[in-house]
């Protein structure tokens, strides 16, 4: 049985007085012990998916529909108190920018400890002992001293480790990591991804939703991948099958543009054009206008057909219609 089962999720933003869909009818699932990569360029709606799952959307956004099955419940439907117990308890979350994710006015140990005390029945002393253990588990050197350090006294990599320690403090069943390594340099990126894989997948059999614009990150960390474009998932499959045989033109373009030794990390400039803004999306297939294989029937207003190839593999493109 899946750990997380997202069905027909829709999220809207209010801009200029009307509601615009940022996430349109997205479905995916995730089993325990599995890492799913959610990949797409900036502006595709990846963070909006993450914050929808956590119900931490900004004030001008709303969940417009869908079901978020987790732990036998629908996260889209439970009360705020119950949802709050999920956050940081059953579900951990990490953000992109480690420099700003921690409260600058509090010591690392207290920021970990307060998570523990929020969700578990532990006193200060016990929380501190657990915090120390957590810092050790995320391989922070001189953990005892770091406990009393302020965020500004740590490097970006150390801060992200501390943020990981917070996210996993209450042994969550699911970790949502939104570009956790984008702001870090390559070596540290690899170490953090390794830690996520070891601590969550291998040691605890938890699920990981790893959001990134970098397919390279997915290749090393994830079991399956979902490619997202302009608010929709256009292709899913196991990492091995998608990388070996990308079907959607957008996936192909992403792979070609994927950073390698020769191009600077994070540049996806080789796909011409850019992700359309909300309300500017073409009808039919949303990749129209940027696609190298565009045909007249791509404009069909019912959108591209969803073609299921095997248990994990699905693609939404006319090129692969039966």
């Amino acid at each position: 049985m899946s750990l997380l089962e997202v069905n027909h999720l829709r999220t809207e933003f209010e801009t200029g007085g009307n509601w615009q869909e940022a996430v349109s009818d997205i479905s995916f699932d995730l089993a325990g012990g599995e890492a799913l990569g959610l990949v797409g360029e900036s502006g595709c709606g990846k963070s909006t998916v993450a914050f929808s799952l956590m119900r931490l959307l900004p004030g001008n956004a709303r969940l417009a529909g869908g079901r978020i099955g987790f732990d036998g419940k629908d996260l889209a439907d439970i009360g705020e108190d119950e949802m709050r117990r999920m956050r940081g308890g059953r579900i951990g979350m990490m953000f992109q920018n480690p420099m700003t994710a921690l409260d600058p006015a509090f010591r690392i140990g207290s920021q970990i400890g307060e998570t523990l005390q929020t969700h578990l029945d532990v006193d200060r002393k016990e929380a501190r002992r657990m915090a120390l253990e957590l810092l050790r588990s995320v391989a922070i050197p001189a953990a005892e001293e770091r406990l009393d350090a302020y965020p500004h006294e740590l490097s970006g990599g150390m801060r992200q480790r501390a943020a990981l320690a917070i996210a996993i403090a209450c042994r969550p069943r699911l970790l949502i990591a939104d570009e956790p390594t984008t702001a870090l340099d390559v070596t540290i990126q690899a170490q953090i991804l390794r830690l996520i894989r070891t601590l969550l997948i291998e040691e605890r059999g938890a699920g990981v939703l790893l959001i990134t614009h970098d397919l390279g990150v997915v290749a090393h960390t994830c079991d399956r991948v979902a490619i997202m474009y302009a608010g929709e998932i256009v292709e899913t499959g196991t990492v091995a099958s998608v990388f070996a045989n990308p079907l959607h033109p957008y996936t192909q373009a992403l792979l070609e543009a994927a950073p390698n030794a020769r191009t600077p990390r994070g540049s996806l400039a080789t796909i011409p054009g850019r992700v359309p803004a909300l309300g500017m999306r073409p009808s039919g297939c949303r990749f129209r206008g940027r696609c190298a294989f565009e045909r007249p029937d791509c404009a069909d207003p019912s959108g591209p057909p969803r073609v299921r190839l095997d248990k994990h593999r699905e693609v939404a493109c006319v090129l692969h219609a039966a």
Binding site: L56, R84, G88, F95, A101, L102, T115, A163, A167
Partner: peptide, 21 residues
Amino acid sequence: RDFVRFLKAKGLPPRAIINRH
């Protein structure tokens, strides 16, 4: 600021987020 969102993601009650942080 970003860290407020992280505090919410930690499951802290709104009162604690405001009064403490």
